[in-house]
Design a protein around this nucleic acid. Sequence first.
RNA 1: GGAGAGAUGGCUGAGUGGUUGAAAGCGCUCGCCUCGAAAGCGAGUAGGCGGGUAGCCCCUGCCUCGUGAGUUCGAAUCUCACUCUCUCCGCCA
Length: 426
Amino acid sequence: MLDIKTIREDPKLVKDSLVRRGEDSSVVDMLLLCDEERRKLVYEVEKLKQRRNEVSSEIAKMKREDQDTKGAILEMREVGERIKEMDDTIRQMEKKISDILLSIPNIPHESVPYGKDESENVEVRRWREPRSFDFEPKAHWDIGVNLGILDFERASKISGARFTVLRGAGARLSRALVAFMIDLHTGEHGYTEIYPPVLVNTESMIGTGQLPKFAEDMFHCEGTDYYLIPTAEVPVTNLYRDEILSADDLPIYHVAYSACFRAEAGSAGRDTRGLIRQHQFDKVELVKFVKPGTSYDELEKLVGNAEEVLRRLELPYRVVMMCTGDVGFAAAKKYDPEVWMPSYGRYVEISSCSNFEDFQARRANIRYRSEPGAKPEYVHTLNGSGVAVGRTIAAILENYQEADGSVVVPEALRPYMGGLRRIEAE
RNA sequence: GGAGAGAUGGCUGAGUGGUUGAAAGCGCUCGCCUCGAAAGCGAGUAGGCGGGUAGCCCCUGCCUCGUGAGUUCGAAUCUCACUCUCUCCGCCA
């Protein structure tokens, strides 16, 4: 959420940002109109309330002195009615303003390149050349099924499309990856581990920006106020909702493993095979709460932390900076580390690292005091995958496959796999 | 699921219709004291939304005592609904 005061003072900035994102900027004028109207009403009703307060204390005094209060009470009864009506109108106006405010995306940082869609994202760096195979490499869904470690057919029987059952070494590989990633981030990057609920309420979803705009992407538990989280970003960022932190608390670094759930409405036909796009997948997420001045440095470090996972696993990757048309609703700046996927013949997103500045903090009301007694200010929040587990399994299967159909276990993972060096068909 | 108790400021905790936005304590900040510190003493210390003035200093109004409605001239205080927490019982991995 943007600050209404910023919009009031510099509407052009917000309109330009919407245009750069390729969105309609006319909401800004509508918003300002409502805002002006609201302030006018607030001013009026507050004058009435002041009058009511004054007369009420006069009535108290008159009663103590045994004077007649009938006239004053009658007058105030009318004033009270009037106040109620106006408060109603103001409440409607505020609802409208907040609806608009919640639907306006963040302003991209000045370092974000202009572009209309993902085709204009900018590659920032590459690590390692993709391996060249002396045989025809297979896709991970074939490798996994042949090894008996991925079972898509039974998954579709028990659940449906876009689900997977992991079996044997496949299940262990997944568990090993989660442990490996969390150990790396807690042990070497200074993150504190969190294990969050995967069901959260509406308020949390609004706090991080999934709602109200992207309701169709979410699984909602019918008859309840619970949503299945699309990422651990939601519960972990909302950990400090409506809190005022002290400067000493910052920066806060959290790492959280969770299952993630996405309805994937509107992606029919895309990535239908394999582990790339599932309704349920595992992810290790990194979340930071930092002082405003530091958030862009923190973003670079965060991306580096995600990249370190891929380097340790020796998976070739590149990092892409999102352009204005692809930066995402809540982010001011975003980098996507992408892993090389032989079956796709290209790099595939395996992480997404964003600086939200105070966009989420304002929605979720997460503040801090720069020093004792100072006015509370909004923190900056960041998060990034560190990294997506399902896609990492896919990348390992494909990049580490051998001509005989077996898959070599990356060295960094072997301690977590009971020393297993190679996954072979049983 | 049943019965009961509760929800007040950074924290603990008073307050059952009218100078209570809120006692007291703790914490924190500043000052005094001290060579310095502690102790002691004194002062200060919620957030939000408007208006004035104007770069976050200051003045001023309104709102906020879990959330939402209601009663009333006036609600932290009375009524109703909801949410959450705790205790006991039941059920259960």
